[in-house]
Design a binder for these strands. Structure first.
Length: 774
DNA sequence: GGGTTAGGGT
């Protein structure tokens, strides 16, 4: 994430007595200003109403539009109303429901709780839970919002208000409001299935429907049934889909808090565009030529597309005479959306939104910039290049930001007044029947289009140009299907099993995933030895895998590595594959990055190549930021991805090596430069993804018989070993196997006997055999 | 012979 890189630790305040009064005066003034700002927020006006609703209902669904202040204010209201309080003091809601859960007898999860909760003896006393948890889908949001709220409350971060994200826990026993990622709360639920330390859980940005949010919603529904009246749930969503949540939670009530978004004028094209990339470039040039100042944000689908759009735009700009660049001349070839429809007017505050006329009036202030700065932004872009989009455009210039959907929710770019929406997005999908992920450009949903348009109205009235017709818009899906219905569920199913939820197929999901996806995951977990014949979690493998914060197949690699004496290497490899792609491969510099990669290349495969990169990075002086960034940029390595791999590595080392429990207490030996133990460990976890070479140069997945191709990024592309294991299948133009390592076929029946045993001879002969063993 | 949207984890 772009912002993360620039989070600086706050400078320690040196308070000498002479400065004290001045500082205090400044601080008091600051508090006064913050307080005044708070009172202006729409959420403030709704305070009493919301608290009253929450006295009477166990679930409050709060639709808070952008700018309502819900994320910062609601938790403070809850705290002030004693929903989060120091132990002992009586809250606004009586505590006498505290024993209901226990009285209701053991529900799902109690058996596992007894086995894993720190305090042995079954139920922990959740009556003591007095904290307010507020979940966010993203780490940066959890961090920054917590800091803001701590400031508003005049406390130090980590005291009354804190946050917890992976690798970082800034909370203390005094913490009453805890901002955290949804994934982290899910992890906590693993050892504390009743969420006993929380009096209230607030699920923010619920409309995003991340996998973690959806699983949490399901778990909390069960928690509510068992904890009774001492527990409250607040679901906060930015869109008007409250009914879905209200229907799902018994007795839930909904409330709406208006936002403070400026009006955005939405324009559609009169006719469908046959090339949205060309259309986007034309539209950008025309906005630049005709509209008053304000930056342009263009939504495209991926890195390649952004790179070529950048080139095309720059070419068009440089071919224009300097005088024409600033005038409307460039619009000749463009046909900007003509039909208009005001949208989001309801989101406007004072005076009910303004509409197109107000937009024109406000936007007309200031002159038309001369120069257009073209800036790309996507997650894989090196941090220093990412930062450029946050710098204000110099006087007389305008920024055109070419973005992926990173700019939809993850980052907010100041200065944007114009949005160009191509109406497309690259989206991941999962075909459970084939065990296949795919990545394809698809039309956006209406909700997504609205989210994009809204980005034009953060700082003033704006305009959104949709490069499709209004009729096309009306045909779009209302919302994007929740991620849980289109992803691999191995981890989710394992977590549920670990929480004692044995009937995963019967779990009360808000939107149930396809049955085949759950069945697939159960089969995989069984093959890995995480589940026994009756579908119960096994102590030896399943329980351990559920504790490891990595994909179950990689977790299995780690357990095998501990036995095979290559724990250190396997941890590094698993950390690397768990992080994002570390290789930066700009198309224009192909020769350079290929040359740079040579020094890490292992002829045994991609996993060992990644190990070499990791080792190279770890050899650098850790304290020298300069050495590290220099090394990364010289080698076309994404430093953000590598730092993350390093964090994961550290976390895994601590966890694997730490005595059990809470760690796994496994030995971490090194195999040095010997690769066989590591490749065998990889085989022991990735065997469902073993494939044999075919005469035509393609591969056949042994477990399924499916034909796949080695991904062009693989170091094995030329060598084409007879047998390999790979991380994942991805369907783009063809079905590709990514991240592969050469193995010996005879290891398969040896390392995964239950999977390959019966058909061992057939498997080694390259015949698709083990499919039946599933 | 050819290519990786965005998030997230005790």
């Amino acid at each position: 994430m772009a912002n993360t890189e620039h989070e600086k630790p706050r400078p320690k305040k040196q308070r000498r007595s002479g400065e004290l009064r001045e500082n205090d005066a400044a601080a008091a003034e600051r508090r006064r200003r913050i307080d005044a700002e708070r009172r202006q927020l729409p959420a403030w006006a709704a305070r009493d109403k919301l608290l009253a609703l929450l006295q009477q209902h166990r679930t409050l669904v709060l639709v808070g539009e952008t700018g309502s202040g819900k994320t910062t204010q609601i938790p403070q209201f809850l705290l002030a109303a004693k929903f989060g309080k120091s132990s002992g003091s009586k809250g606004a809601v009586p505590d006498d429901g505290a024993d209901e859960g226990a009285a209701a007898g053991p529900g799902p999860g109690s058996a596992r709780t007894a086995a894993t909760a720190p305090a042995a003896g079954g139920h922990r006393a959740y009556g003591g839970g007095q904290c307010i948890a507020v979940t966010q889908p993203r780490r940066v949001a959890a961090m920054t919002v917590a800091r803001r709220v701590a400031e508003e409350m005049g406390t130090k971060i980590g005291q009354q208000v804190g946050y917890a994200i992976r690798f970082e826990d800034v909370t203390s026993p005094a913490t009453r409001i805890k901002y955290m990622t949804d994934g982290l709360l899910l992890r906590e639920a693993l050892v504390d299935p009743l969420l006993s330390r929380y009096r209230v859980v607030v699920i923010d940005e619920a409309h995003e429907r991340t996998v973690h949010t959806d699983v949490l919603l399901g778990l909390i529904k069960g928690v509510q049934a068992r904890r009774g009246d001492d527990f409250r749930l607040v679901v906060m969503s930015a869109t008007l889909d409250a009914a879905r949540f209200v229907d799902y939670f018994p007795g839930a009530v909904a409330a709406l808090v208006r936002g403070r978004q400026f009006p955005v004028q939405v324009l559609y094209t009169a006719r469908p565009e046959d090339n949205y990339l060309d259309a986007a470039i034309n539209a950008t040039l025309q906005v630049h030529g005709e509209e008053p100042e304000g930056d342009v944000l263009v939504f495209l689908t991926g890195q390649d597309e952004i790179d070529s759009a950048e080139r095309l735009l720059k070419d068009r700009l440089s071919s224009l005479p300097a005088a024409a660049r600033m005038a409307g001349v460039v619009g000749a070839a463009a046909e900007l959306p003509g039909e208009e429809a005001a949208e989001g007017g309801g989101g406007g505050v004072e005076g009910g939104g303004g509409g197109p006329a107000a937009a024109e009036a406000a936007a007309a202030v200031g002159g038309r910039p001369r120069e257009l700065l073209v800036l790309p932004i996507y997650a894989a872009l090196p941090p220093e290049q990412q930062m450029k989009v946050f710098e204000p455009a110099p006087p007389g210039t305008r920024k055109a930001i070419l973005a992926t959907n990173i700019a939809e929710t993850s980052i907010t770019i100041p200065g944007v007044r114009y949005v160009i929406d191509t109406g497309h997005v690259k989206a991941r999908d999962y075909n459970a029947k084939l065990g296949l992920e795919s990545l394809a450009v698809v039309p956006v949903s209406q909700a997504q289009a609205r989210q994009r348009s809204g980005r034009a109205g953060r700082e003033g009235p704006g305009k959104a140009y949709r490069l499709y017709t209004e009729a096309d818009f009306s045909q779009l899906a209302a919302t994007t299907p929740p991620e849980i219905t289109r992803c691999n569920l191995a981890s989710v199913v394992l977590q549920l099993k670990a929480m004692g939820i044995d009937d995963v197929l019967g779990f009360d999901f808000m939107d149930p995933p396809p049955r085949t996806a759950i069945l697939r995951s159960l089969e995989l977990l069984f093959a890995l030895g995480a589940l026994d014949n009756s579908g119960k979690l096994t102590e030896e493998v399943g329980l351990r895998l559920s504790r490891l914060p990595v994909d179950p197949m990689f977790g299995r690699v780690l357990l095998a590595a501990a036995e095979l004496g290559c724990g250190v290497e396997a941890l590094a490899v698993v950390a690397m594959v768990s992080a994002d792609n570390v290789f930066h491969t700009p198309r224009q510099k192909e020769a350079e990055w290929r040359a740079a990669r040579l020094k890490f290349l292992s002829r045994e495969g991609d996993h060992l190549t990644l190990l070499n990169v990791f080792r190279g990075f770890m050899e650098l002086p850790k304290e020298s930021h300069k050495a590290r960034t220099g090394w990364c940029s010289d080698n076309f390595i994404n430093i953000r991805a590598l730092r993350k791999a390093e964090d994961i590595y550290t976390q895994l080392v601590r966890f694997m090596g730490h005595p059990c429990p809470p760690g796994l207490g496994l030995p971490l030996a090194t195999c040095g430069d010997e690769t066989t133990p590591l490749r065998r460990a990889l085989t022991a976890g990735l065997f469902p993804h073993a494939a044999r070479l075919q005469p035509d140069g393609s591969y056949r997945v042994i477990a399924t018989g499916r034909q796949v191709f080695l991904h062009p990024s693989s170091v094995l592309l030329e060598r084409k070993p007879d047998c390999l294991v790979f991380n994942e299948l991805m369907h783009t133009t063809r079905t590709y196997a990514r991240d592969a390592t050469a193995i010996e076929a005879r290891w398969l029946p040896e390392l995964a006997p239950a999977f390959f045993a019966a058909k061992a001879s057939a498997a080694t002969a390259g015949v698709s055999a083990a499919g039946a063993a599933r």
